[in-house]
Write a protein that binds this DNA or RNA. Structure first.
Lengths: 205, 205
DNA sequence: TTATATACGGAACAATGTTCCGCTTTGCAA
DNA sequence: TTGCAAAGCGGAACATTGTTCCGTATATAA
């Protein structure tokens, strides 16, 4: 929260951000670890051995546990990182495309995210309390992202206004997860249908 | 596959069913094991150690693995047994109550089943191929059970006829699983609502 | 009662999560 | 540049749990 207050006590020049000097190698390892974990989770599933991830990242097991006290902490970190990436895509798409198009593209991006993280979704419902906070983070991060796109598209008269971001998000998530069994292409089409539904009752201007 | 051919070599009298004599103690242990597993899974979750189940059943670990070559086999056996129990409840309820009432009661029984097996549901989606056959068994066993109740209630004019057993079953399962987060009471009410919906358009006689 | 196939129990092994600690690297300052 | 203390690292060692193996015990047929 407010760790930067003690900057004054240290008498450090502003910009040095010394309150939490993170050694360069530590940051390097942490980044590599998250990257390796993402890859390994995707190929071997979320139950892949910690040793495999450590090896892939080129670090020792001890290093993994230094950054993530428990295995589940690593899983959570990877998941949150992916949620962030998906949320961050919203403003980028909004800057590059017309409101309706940006919305449609983001929804497809979201489908990809859910499809790729299907394994993690199973972990969420495993009963492990370590994952309890993830659903809330999911909503908290993605709802505003979608809402901004939705509002912009609505303001431009490209989509109707009677659908809440929350409902659309959950509907798309459900569709993506259940439809995945019939192939990711099917999931894409279903969500596309959903977006077209939004366009249907649009009020021009 | 065809081990029963040697019955002739043994020269056994018909009715002795000697092709696979099961020793009494073996059957006793198997039953106790399933019972213990059901209890342990309910209290400690499906990830409970095999040793814990063996101890609860009062047998050695070797005995567990004699009956169930892999841990997942035990999980599957317990799950199938519960599915069977739920399916078997249908004809019993049908004999004890009027068609509409029997249907309503069975649906509540089904909600209890899903709620109690929520932990197992997570295992189903874990990606472990050992559980691949369970969903099919679930449908295969419960659909006919529900259909018989539904048909009887429809024939008695107590419910409408335009809802398929398959759809009703899946809808109830979805409701039970998702609504469980808001408490089992909520799940009960939602499924009750579903059944009342069935009664709504009933054609008397 | 005896012979034997069947079943049992649990030690031993293997895989994997987690802890611990001596060694190395980094960043700072003299 | 050099020295040093703190931060970080690696991996052996430990703990837990799934699985295998085999000597021993027992139910059943004759």
């Amino acid at each position: 929260m407010s760790d930067e207050r003690k900057e004054q006590e240290d008498g450090l020049k502003p910009g040095e951000r010394a309150d939490r000097r993170v050694r360069a190698d530590a940051k390097r390892n942490l980044d590599g670890l998250l990257q390796a974990a993402l890859t390994v989770f995707a190929t071997s599933g979320v139950d892949a051995p910690v040793r495999e991830i450590a090896e892939k990242a080129g670090v020792g097991i001890g290093t993994v546990y230094r950054h993530f006290p428990e295995r589940s902490d690593l899983v959570v970190a990877v998941f949150r990182r992916e949620i962030d990436a998906c949320a961050d895509a919203a403003p980028i798409l909004a800057a590059e495309h017309a409101p309706g198009e940006a919305l449609a593209r983001w929804m497809q991006r979201f489908v990809d995210f859910i499809a790729a993280k299907r394994g993690l979704a199973a972990a969420l419902h495993s009963g492990n309390p370590a994952f309890d906070a993830l659903p809330a983070y999911f909503q908290q991060r993605l709802q505003p992202a979608l809402r901004s796109l939705l509002d912009a598209a609505a303001a431009a008269g490209e989509v109707r206004t009677d659908i809440a971001a929350e409902d659309l998000l959950n509907a798309a998530a459900s569709l993506s997860m259940h439809a995945y069994a019939q192939g990711s292409e099917h999931a894409r089409r279903m969500v596309s249908l959903l977006v077209d539904g939004l366009r249907y009752g649009a009020v021009q201007r």
